[in-house]
């Protein structure tokens, strides 16, 4: 039998380069540059987090995570996330529906306002909340009188977290809803579906992956928010200290292993977020907004 490869015509001596390609040497150089750049900028810090956490053995890291204050911080962060992400999701759904399905004056302004939190410094966001709800303001004093303090308490932390995560879900849902158009929903209405029925049986299934994507991003940000929470929380140990705040306090007390152990916990969650997000981009690309398609 002949090996088919021996019969293949000899390749031309000169290596041809397509008109849309850079020279091979430049290509290899750029790929190398990207590897070096990302190794230094991204992977080195990530490795450092885990390296420092485990620098005195896994036992020390686990002990640090078992401290009551660490527990309190983790519980608070989970609670804040559980309260703020649904708010962000409801806002995102409402914004998607109102903007993608109706025409009204001021729509463009509304879209800009939704993106506003992206360009406001988290510290300024926290400051704004302090100025609205804090001590020595009319509203703040009244709320304290009602036994419902906002600043230096859970509500303030939740408000600050919602402020910084506000656009996440809306930004993912809106382009998908605009792209899909309203024909399917109109069809459901002509078939006799009520508004809510149409929403749950047609709208929601169509945007579920985009919604999940936005929720994922919002969750990651909510668990890690630092600047805005630092301003409104008052950093009361064991009471208003979220995990990122606890990391700062431990770090400033030179409890490096403890600080990095909590940091490693958050970093692990960040990696899980990235993995889930990437899986969504690969498997449900067609259901995400166009610039999320891998």
């Amino acid at each position: 039998m002949f090996d088919a490869a021996h019969l293949a015509p000899p390749r031309p001596a000169r290596r041809f380069r397509a008109a849309t390609e850079e020279p091979a040497a430049l290509r290899r150089g750029l790929i190398g540059l990207v590897f070096v750049l990302l190794a230094v900028l991204l992977f080195a810090p990530l490795v450092t987090v885990f390296g420092e956490a485990l620098s005195q053995g896994a036992g020390a890291a686990l002990t640090a995570l078992a401290e009551p204050e660490a527990h309190a911080a983790i519980r608070l962060t989970l609670l804040v996330t559980a309260l703020s992400v649904p708010l962000t999701a409801v806002f995102g759904l409402a914004a998607g529906w109102a903007i993608a399905r109706f025409d009204f004056p001021g729509k463009a302004v509304l879209i800009t306002l939704i993106d506003l939190p992206f360009s406001v410094s988290p510290v300024v966001a926290g400051l704004c909340l302090v100025l609205l709800f804090g001590a020595n303001t009319t509203l703040g004093d009244w709320l304290v009188g009602q036994g419902m303090p906002v600043v230096f308490a859970l509500p303030g932390i939740v408000l600050a977290t919602v402020f910084v995560t506000f656009p996440f879900v809306a930004r993912e849902i809106l382009p998908v809803m605009v792209e899909q158009g309203r024909a399917e929903e109109e069809a459901a209405l002509t078939l006799g579906a009520s508004g809510w029925r149409m929403f749950f049986t047609v709208t929601l299934p169509n945007i579920r992956w985009a919604l999940l994507y936005g929720v994922l991003l919002a969750t990651a940000r909510a668990m890690g928010e630092f600047g805005a929470v630092a301003v409104v929380s008052g950093k009361i140990r064991g009471v208003t200290a979220t995990v990122p705040i606890a990391i700062e306090m431990l770090y400033n007390e030179y409890l490096t292993v403890a600080a990095f152990s909590l940091a490693a916990l958050l970093a692990s969650l960040a990696l899980v977020t990235l993995a889930l997000k990437t899986a969504l981009e690969w498997r449900h690309a067609d259901a995400l907004s166009a610039n999320r398609r891998a």
Binding site: L217, R221, G224, P244, L266, L274, K277
Partner: peptide, 24 residues
Amino acid sequence: LIDAAIDLPFALPTAVAGIALTAL
């Protein structure tokens, strides 16, 4: 893998990034 890793700074809490960069 690199494409997925680009979003790490979005996902990693800033305080975590801060102390890691400082240690480095």
